[in-house]
Write a protein that binds this DNA or RNA. Structure first.
Lengths: 248, 248
DNA sequence: TAGGGGAACTTGTACAAACAAGCGAGCACC
DNA sequence: GGTGCTCGCTTGTTTGTACAAGTTCCCCTA
């Protein structure tokens, strides 16, 4: 059973992606959408809020909403799971465990995962036949056994862990920066040492807030980029119009 | 006049940051919060939604909300404006225009800005006295004159343009990846050619959806990282495949 | 013609009420 | 002991109403 507002949001999104509402155009008013879908205004507002959060639509008090983009920007799953992202975008991809062992956690890992022992896994991932990603993940000990049970060439660890243990990765914190390739990175990716890599460090937790893994993913430059669409609305500027008449 | 739900959200955020609700702990129920603040449940829900969107709090049906983090994540202003980010974090910073000229737009810029001519500005930015950022921005012609009127060592272009023209950067689309430093990058940042740089390309528009600028910012590795906190429910960040013609 | 004043429209905030759906703890039963 | 079930609590969805606040555009006036 999908919620009413989700169906309305889906309808609207589809219209936007189909070009019914081109970029820069105005969306129908809440009242009109409410009438069209025979829903209360609150429900329509909830639907539009979804699109605003996705960055597809811009909204400000008093003016009609406008269309900001027409590309589907997608979900947590894509950001978290290389496999889900690659599959959703129709890429050929693969993965291979290079090294896997239990060891005591580093100071950072101990603080993040709160574990006495972690399962350290080194994976290499490929896209369209080319190696693009070196993944170093430390799993909390309570999930280690399930990870060890996976085949070394497991395509999607996220999905495999869900199937085998019902584990759901629900929240993540990500740090993105650039680093030069180390000796091991260079060998695994087939590039020169010191080449630029896009690094994504993350900590993932379950719904209950229990930390699951702590990972350091390094992408070959040019293979992958991160995209963000955002707006002032979520974090309003402190200044207000009115300075306008006096300022310069 | 601040909205009621914003005050409630601020209160809650403050409590979380102060450690009243430590990471992993449960938040008071909506009913309790409503009683405490003498507000309707809907208002409280709106307040909590803010924190959920910020990634501070996790929420799922049936269970009490839990605290996910105790650090504020990046705001739009911080992501958009180097100066505002640096100031908010208490860093010493500076800026200097290296080159500024009008020129015809590239194909990409023409498509994104819809202009016949752009103002091309090359800026270098420093943090704690060290040069960390090379900024190449193409401004749409309708704002070019205002940009040219700014002093070459203008600290915050965003704020200066707001003061002089009432211009507000409202929406942004950002692409983040890693690239090797070119000859000019290397010279300006005082690093070796080929060193890793964290690149943030962005297009910014006004409230009306009118494109203002198209920029290519390159950070020295190690100087800056982007941080994102997300959940299964909502997240703003998306991964994109390489070979990225910007915005296509 | 330029500018001010409104009126109509549109989104934002707040309250109240009701039901649906999921979670967790405790209880009874085997 | 453990398994399954029920019940109360909590969050999710939906509707309705009222007012506040900002935008847009037309019309009237100077």
């Amino acid at each position: 059973m999908v919620a009413r507002y989700e169906r309305i949001a889906d309808d609207l999104r589809e219209e936007i992606l189909a070009g019914v509402h081109p970029v820069g155009a105005q969306l129908p008013s809440e009242a009109e959408l409410a009438a069209r879908h025979r829903a209360a205004r609150g429900t329509v507002r909830q639907a539009v809020a979804v699109l605003v959060a996705e960055g597809l639509v811009g909204s400000r008090q008093g003016a009609r909403r406008i269309v900001l983009g027409n590309a589907r920007s997608q979900s947590f799953a894509e950001l978290h799971s290389f496999a889900q992202w690659a599959r959703a975008n129709g890429y050929r991809f693969g993965g291979q465990v290079i090294l896997q062992r239990r060891r005591p956690p580093s100071a950072v890992e101990a603080a993040r995962l709160g574990a006495e022992e972690v399962l350290d896994v080194l994976r290499i991932r490929s896209l369209e036949g080319e190696p693009v990603l070196v993944e170093r993940t430390a799993y909390a000990s309570w999930i280690a056994a399930a990870v060890e049970a996976l085949p070394p060439d497991c395509e999607s660890v996220t999905e495999a862990l869900y199937d085998s243990s019902g584990l759901v990765f629900a929240y993540g914190e990500h740090l993105i920066d650039a680093v030069p390739a180390g000796a091991q990175d260079a060998r695994l990716l087939g590039i020169r040492r010191g080449s630029p890599l896009l690094r994504q460090r993350r900590v993932t937790t379950t719904y209950e807030g229990r930390p699951v893994e702590c990972s350091d993913d390094r992408y070959r430059a040019g293979s992958v980029a991160f995209s963000i669409r955002n707006s002032l609305v979520a974090n309003p500027l402190v200044r207000r119009a009115g300075d306008l008449h006096f300022g310069a």
